[in-house]
C-alpha cells in the first residue's frame, strides 16, 4: 500500500540503498551473474576473461563497467545486493569487511578499528540533512 512513488522515507537515510522489489528487478542479471560464481568452473572462466564472461548476462553496460572496476558502491546503487556481490568479492579473495570499508571510503584497518570501538554511531547518520551539515 505504501507506494514509494508517493513518499519514500528510506530515500532520506544517508549512504543506504534499500534492496527492494524494484531494485531487485533492475539488478536481476547482475545478481544472477554473481550467483553463477558459486560454481568453480564458472569462477575459472570468469577469471580467464572477465569481459567475455560478463557478456553472457544481459546486464546494462554501466553494471558491467562497475563489476570490471569492482566499484562496490556503484554496484549497490545499480541493483546489486551485497549477499550476491559477496560471491564476486569472495572470488577475488576479499572479505565483507574489506568491501564494507571500501564503500565507506575507509581503509580496512580504519574500518576494523572503528568496529573495535563499537562501530559507527547512529547519531548523525539518520538522515540526509545531517550529512549535508
Amino acid at each position: 500500500m505504501a507506494d514509494k512513488a508517493v513518499v519514500d522515507p528510506f530515500e532520506d537515510i544517508p549512504g543506504t540503498t534499500l534492496f527492494n522489489a524494484e531494485r531487485s528487478r533492475v539488478g536481476y542479471h547482475l545478481n544472477m551473474f554473481c550467483m553463477s560464481l558459486m560454481k568453480k568452473a564458472n569462477r575459472e572462466e570468469f577469471k580467464a576473461n572477465e569481459d567475455l564472461y560478463l557478456r553472457k548476462w544481459p546486464m546494462t553496460d554501466e553494471q558491467r563497467e562497475a563489476v570490471l572496476k569492482r566499484d562496490w558502491g556503484r554496484m549497490i546503487q545499480l541493483g546489486g545486493n551485497v549477499y550476491f556481490l559477496s560471491k564476486l568479492f569472495s572470488t577475488d579473495g576479499l572479505s565483507f569487511q574489506f568491501v564494507a570499508a571500501s564503500m565507506t571510503g575507509m581503509t580496512q584497518e580504519q574500518y576494523a578499528e572503528m568496529m573495535l570501538h563499537g562501530g559507527r554511531k547512529v547519531d548523525g547518520n539518520r538522515s540526509n540533512s545531517e550529512w549535508v551539515k
Binding site: M1, A2, D3, K4, N20, A21, E22, R25
Partner: peptide, 15 residues
C-alpha cells in the same frame, strides 16, 4: 511485466 509485477509485490507485501 516485471515492472508492474515488482510494484505489486512491494505494495501487497507491505499490505
Amino acid at each position: 511485466h516485471p515492472k508492474l509485477a515488482s510494484h505489486i509485490a512491494q505494495s501487497v507485501i507491505l499490505d
